[in-house]
C-alpha cells in the first residue's frame, strides 16, 4: 500500500538523477589567421590582486597573498570592414566611413605579474604556482570586464580618425571627412 503511494515520487527522483547534461566540447584548431586590424591605442593598466584563504572551516590557519599585475590593452579598427562604396572622392575631397573600434588584445605578460606579499600560517601549505596562476586568471577576467569603463574604444576611434586623416593628407587630399557610422568628424 505504502509502496504504491510513494512509487511515483521515487520514480521522479530516479528520473531527476538520470538527467545529467553532457557538455559538448569543441575541438580547438590552432593555425595562422589573417587579419586587417589597425591598432590605434594602447592602455597600460595596473591592478592589485588580493586574496585571503580563510573561508574553509576545517582548515586551521590563514593564507594571504598580494600580487601586482600590469596589463596592456590594445584597441583599433578592422580595415577589412571598409568597402569601396564607403569611400567617396570628389577631386581633392574624400569622405571615408570607418568601422567602429574594437578590442584587439589584452596582454598580461608573465613578467608583469609579481608577488608583493605572502603570509602563510604554520599549519598551511604555501601557494603553489597553479594557485597563483588561478588568482591571476581571476584578475585577467576582471580586467577584460572593465574594458568598457576605461573608454579605450572611444580613444581608439579618435586615434584611428587622426591617423587616417594624416595618411590621406600625405596622399594629397585636402578636405578629408571621416565618419564612424552615424557619428562623424571632419578634419581639414
Amino acid at each position: 500500500m505504502l509502496f504504491k503511494k510513494y512509487c511515483p515520487f521515487l520514480l521522479l527522483i530516479l528520473y531527476c538523477s538520470a538527467c545529467n547534461k553532457k557538455e559538448q566540447r569543441l575541438q580547438q584548431v590552432m593555425a595562422l589567421q589573417q587579419m586587417s586590424d589597425l591598432a590605434t591605442v594602447e592602455y597600460v593598466v595596473t591592478k592589485i590582486i588580493k586574496a585571503s584563504d580563510n573561508k574553509t572551516w576545517y582548515k586551521i590557519g590563514d593564507r594571504k597573498i598580494l600580487m601586482s599585475c600590469k596589463a596592456t590593452l590594445t584597441a583599433g579598427i578592422d580595415l577589412s570592414a571598409i568597402k569601396s562604396e564607403q569611400v567617396q572622392i570628389e577631386g581633392k575631397n574624400i569622405t571615408l566611413t570607418l568601422p567602429h573600434s574594437k578590442m584587439i588584445a589584452v596582454n598580461i605578460k608573465p613578467e608583469d605579474i609579481v608577488e608583493e606579499y605572502e603570509s602563510i600560517d604554520v599549519l598551511r601549505q604555501p601557494f603553489s604556482g597553479e594557485e597563483r596562476n588561478a588568482l591571476a586568471i581571476q584578475a585577467e577576467t576582471q580586467v577584460k570586464a572593465s574594458v568598457a569603463e576605461l573608454g579605450i574604444l572611444q580613444t581608439a576611434e579618435t586615434n584611428a580618425a587622426l591617423f587616417v586623416n594624416s595618411f590621406l593628407h600625405r596622399l594629397g587630399y585636402e578636405k578629408i571627412t571621416i565618419h564612424f557610422d552615424n557619428a562623424s568628424s571632419t578634419k581639414n
Partner: peptide, 29 residues
C-alpha cells in the same frame, strides 16, 4: 575547500599610447 577568490580592486591607468600598427597575422600555438 572553498574557492579562493580575489577582491575586486580598481584598475589604474598608467599610460595611454597612440599606435598605428597594422596587424596582419595572428599565429596561435
Amino acid at each position: 575547500s572553498q574557492p579562493l577568490e580575489i577582491d575586486n580592486t580598481p584598475l589604474v591607468i598608467k599610460e595611454i599610447n597612440a599606435l598605428a600598427q597594422l596587424i596582419t597575422i595572428t599565429a596561435y600555438n
